[in-house]
Design a protein around this nucleic acid. Sequence first.
DNA 1: CCAAAAGTGTTTTCCGTACACCCATGC
DNA 2: GCATGGGTGTACGGAAAACACTTTTGG
Lengths: 220, 220
Amino acid sequence: MADAAPSPDTPPVAVVVVIFTVVDGGLQVLLIHRSAEPHRGLWAIPGGRLNPGEQLVEAARRKLVDETGVRDVYLEQLFTFDGLDEVTPGGSLAVTYFALVDHGRVRLASRTDWRPAWFTMHRLPPLAFRNEEVLAYALERLRNKLQYSNVAYSLLPTRFTLSQLQRVHESILGRELDKRNFRKRMLSLEIIEATDERQAEGAGRPALLYRFTSREPVVI
Amino acid sequence: MADAAPSPDTPPVAVVVVIFTVVDGGLQVLLIHRSAEPHRGLWAIPGGRLNPGEQLVEAARRKLVDETGVRDVYLEQLFTFDGLDEVTPGGSLAVTYFALVDHGRVRLASRTDWRPAWFTMHRLPPLAFRNEEVLAYALERLRNKLQYSNVAYSLLPTRFTLSQLQRVHESILGRELDKRNFRKRMLSLEIIEATDERQAEGAGRPALLYRFTSREPVVI
DNA sequence: CCAAAAGTGTTTTCCGTACACCCATGC
DNA sequence: GCATGGGTGTACGGAAAACACTTTTGG
């Protein structure tokens, strides 16, 4: 590893956070409307400059809190892209993260310019900065993570029904799952446990509420 | 994503490449002996500053060619660390990559200072810059990749025997594999195919030579 | 009583693993 | 002819997938 001698020739570094949530059966992502050039009028993944002395993950958490007001959610580094922003001479870097938030806890920043909004992943608006690539990569990672970790804890309230959990999985995977197999698997993984409470969902039999045995990331 | 306004307050960016090879049954990694401070006398993963205007992957390829003379091998971005180099005020970033090279093709740079050398992964010298972390992460990723991709193509000559391929897998996974099961699996994945040539390995029946059906990264 | 959602078991298929012997060659 | 490495098949167990009906509640 080279000595890191200070130099003016170092590219600007942005930290960018793909924020996912699931709302009534759809996987959604938070985007910002650009009111300034470049790419004015397009939508972009929220992000900003890394402050001097700030750690990457701190910067990502800061962006997340700025945009949604939530903290203590699942946050993972995705990939570092270069040249996303094709206008900076000498190039630029974007260290991307992805985060999962329970829609019920989010309070979107209300700004007149740069307004944030949720978009369904399969109906995205025109995006700035090759953000299609970033989102595609984030979705792929999320789908993988879902299979062998408990990340879904970050998308649901502390107590939830198995049907809610199944809908979250279905939204992310983009396909329907068999109810019996899904329940069997979730319970055998021992990442969730039943509480003694029930919750009615409109008409129909009330469902048992479950909780995650751990609300920290756990690899299965 | 923020506008990338130029600013002097951007951290220095290093690109670092974990270079793996397999030599007679052992997974080895290329390290550089530091003859200057900080961490003089310790060993470090090769890397260097990202040049202005240079893409990350280009910088990684450049380092790889500098150190080993090889090109067109498997190279993948690992993770971006901050503060590895704890001496730079305001922090620094290290974008890490890992590469897999066929030991037979390598010509190490011969320098008097910063001399490069191969080390067996389970007998590492004292390392600089929290490089233990980086190596542990790289090894984990390599083990995963090995299971569901054809990355091993980059560790072997174009033609190889199944025993050679098995030894590569065993070196990386750190455990012995059953010959029959290994062959069954490799052949069923359809990432390798038999040639009509044979190769004798000392005494004993000559082995069929195989080749990878693709020498580009393929996910299984 | 009927619509709506919750809950529940069995069978089959596929994949990973365990395991032992014969084959071709060099010396 | 023997030491060395190459090559092969079968049986078991566990996980995932396919598949349909009963239960509990609200209206």
